[in-house]
Design a protein around this nucleic acid. Structure first.
Length: 332
DNA sequence: TATGTATGGTAAC
DNA sequence: TTACCCTACATAT
């Protein structure tokens, strides 16, 4: 599942390909039939991403709220305009996909994941894009239009040129503008939505009041938006902060540092589509990290492996049903 | 074919 | 704290 960065990337794709277009909506899977009927025929007017949630507005005060949960994904197909800000940062420009044609400037990196790339001015090309953390990528589609439904598609949005399929969301519902505002009001600051300085003050003041451990607070979407299990572990390691320390006992400068680091990691994530948490690597290690998920993190998913800094075995423990990875030595 | 796992969240107990 | 939801994929049998 996507953490915050993916949702912002997805919102950009909606902005480019869906907003401003009339859409037909359907629920091939059958679990959002009524909602799809209400959407169908309306024009999408704007999209917003806050934390892990996306809000798509249609005519007449109608909003679609989508939360992808752990395994949700959006698939884009058709004549897709790839957002130039969603550019590959891995220097693999110019590669082609299996067929090597038609994709034009939208290409797949050699790792077979992420790195949706746009070269030069955006132009339309016939592609298929999956927007989720696990398997963002491109593949050639057949000529069928609309594309055949594959698997459990909760919601299909179709414009003249673009097809967006939603599968496996935790939440997919219609809201009024007031309800959207209420939903967003419950969320902590998102560096890409809120003023960064204000966000920092909100984050710091909340964390520094809580007896809850900093490890749990970082996962609490009312404290800060968009951080998930990967970024949580990595932010704590980068701060050399013990996850069990109560928020109010974490030095203020450390709390501020974590927020500022989140601002940075989120920006990198949105640019690259990957949860790259080991920056400042030499070029070789950087290439390795971008190519393989196993080489991308300091502690996440590394239980029992030696800490990259001190060699101590990385520990994993269960924290509120989620796995928490950390180095007991570096984060003592 | 069955089982386990996952980047999340909610509601009930 | 536990149960449960949602889906795809990897691994084991």
């Amino acid at each position: 599942m996507p953490e915050g960065h993916s949702v912002h990337r997805i919102a950009r794709q909606f902005d480019r390909n869906i907003v401003g277009h009339a859409v037909g909506a359907s629920s091939p899977q059958g679990r959002f039939v009524e909602g799809a009927a209400i959407i169908s025929g309306r024009t999408a007017t704007q999209v917003r991403a806050v934390g892990k949630q996306m809000f798509l507005e249609f005519d007449d005060d109608l909003w679609l709220r989508v939360h992808l949960g752990m395994y949700g994904a959006w698939d884009f197909a058709g004549e897709i305009l790839v957002d130039p800000t969603i550019a590959s940062a891995n220097g693999r420009m110019g590669q082609t996909n299996q067929r090597g044609t038609e994709l034009g400037e939208a290409i797949l990196d050699s790792a077979g994941e992420n790195s949706l790339t746009s070269i030069g001015a955006p132009r339309r090309s016939r592609v298929h894009v999956r927007m989720s953390e696990q398997t963002t990528g491109l593949s050639d589609e057949g000529d069928e239009w609309p594309p055949p439904v594959v698997g459990q598609v909760r919601l299909r949005l179709l414009t003249d040129l673009t097809c967006a399929d939603l599968r496996g969301p935790t939440a997919c519902e219609l809201q009024s503008a007031d309800e959207v505002a209420a939903t967003i009001a419950k969320l902590g600051p998102d560096p890409l939505v809120d003023d960064v300085r204000e966000g920092e003050e909100r984050f710091v003041s909340v964390v520094r009041r809580k007896p809850t451990s900093i490890g749990l607070l970082l996962m609490d979407q009312s404290v800060v938006s968009g951080i998930g299990n990967v970024y949580r572990a990595e932010l704590l390691f980068r701060a050399r902060q013990n996850p069990h320390t109560p928020g109010r006992d974490v030095p203020e400068e450390v709390v501020r540092g974590i927020w500022r680091d989140w601002v940075r990691l989120l920006a990198i994530g949105v640019e690259t589509g990957q949860m790259m948490t080991m920056d400042d690597l030499d070029p070789d290690a950087y290439r390795r990290a971008m190519a393989s998920r196993d080489d991308r993190h300091w502690v996440y998913h590394r239980a029992g492996l030696p800490c990259r800094v001190c060699g101590t075995a990385i520990v994993v423990e269960e924290a509120a049903t989620r796995k928490l990875y950390w180095c007991p030595s570096c984060q003592a």
